[in-house]
Design a protein around this nucleic acid. Structure first.
Length: 201
DNA sequence: CCTACGATCTGCT
DNA sequence: GCAGATCGTAGGG
């Protein structure tokens, strides 16, 4: 049985642990009656209070970061480089701006639709091996910012894939050089031996 | 108002 | 390996 992750999954206070727990889970979307599914193989944790790399650090409330301060279990989708829609999961409790960036998925269902959205004609790893690419493949845009993850458009399922702790690799996060020392935090998590990740650890 | 730049991707060399 | 794309956001005047 595949079941949607409950609100309690996102409400926990350790964003790093939740990032690990998301490896192997299924990210699903359903727009206009067409479902697409990808297994999460790469994540990054961002802590709103201690982490310079987080958009909300140290306590920056702006129209954009309001989502991060909102309820856990919602999507935080923002535009990067004016082109890419990056999908994050808000965690912890309301008022605490923690989030997890989903960086890569292994396509599992709705491959035809993913190809169409990506403007490709053949499935290979480049279909979804990066945060901008997977959002495009799954049809996620900034319009979906603040979407609840237990609704009918975007959700995450437990696909009952057993992922042992030693199957998860950690490394430093990508593209956060601006964060000084915090760029060295090992808060990127990868499914070992997956060919669907964005870059090797 | 104005400016600088980004949790990236692609195509070309 | 590298430059260009492309625009919302944040911060300063």
């Amino acid at each position: 049985m595949h079941s949607k992750l409950p609100r309690s999954f996102y409400e926990r206070d350790d964003v790093v642990q939740i990032s690990r727990d998301l490896i192997g889970k299924f990210l699903c979307t359903n727009f206009d009656g067409i479902q697409t599914v990808g297994m999460i193989v790469e994540t990054e944790a961002y802590n709103g209070r201690t982490d310079r790399a987080c958009h909300a650090f140290p306590d920056v409330r702006t129209p954009r970061t309001e989502t991060l301060y909102g309820p856990p279990g919602q999507a935080y989708v923002y535009l990067c480089y004016g082109i890419h829609h990056l999908f994050n999961v808000v965690t912890n409790s309301e008022g605490l701006a923690d989030a997890i960036l989903i960086r890569a998925v292994e396509p599992k269902a709705g491959l035809e639709k993913m190809l169409e959205r990506r403007n490709r004609n053949k499935v290979d790893t480049t279909i979804s091996n990066g945060p901008g690419k997977l959002s495009q493949a799954l049809g996620i845009k900034t319009d979906h910012d603040k979407t609840d993850l237990w609704g009918n458009e975007i959700w995450i399922e437990d696909g009952n894939i057993e992922v042992d702790e030693n199957q998860i690799i950690s490394s430093t996060r990508i593209g956060v050089d601006y964060a000084g020392q915090d760029a060295n935090l090992p808060w990127r998590f990868l499914l070992k031996n997956s060919k669907w990740i964005s870059k090797k650890a």
